[in-house]
């Protein structure tokens, strides 16, 4: 699978020393990954992460 640009697909941060995840060739930085893993359904940031994750499926 082709790796896309090194910026976080969600927040746009550049690849940091703290690794993160690569899903379907899209990089997700560690802070975003950690935020998603503890995200509550009523968290105001839910929409932000939901929209960001759409990019990995396109």
């Amino acid at each position: 699978m082709m790796m896309t640009a090194g910026k976080c697909a969600i927040c746009g941060a550049g690849p940091a020393a703290k690794y993160g995840l690569v899903i379907l060739g899209h990089y997700i930085c560690r802070p975003c990954e950690e935020a998603i893993s503890g995200l509550a359904w009523d968290d105001p940031r839910y929409e932000f992460y939901k929209s960001g994750l759409k990019k990995i499926w396109r």
Binding site: L21, I36, L39, Y49, K50, S51, G52, L53, W57
Partner: peptide, 10 residues
């Protein structure tokens, strides 16, 4: 799809 992916990461 996005919500499901959040569930999977969790």
């Amino acid at each position: 799809i996005s919500i499901g992916t959040i569930g999977l990461i969790k």
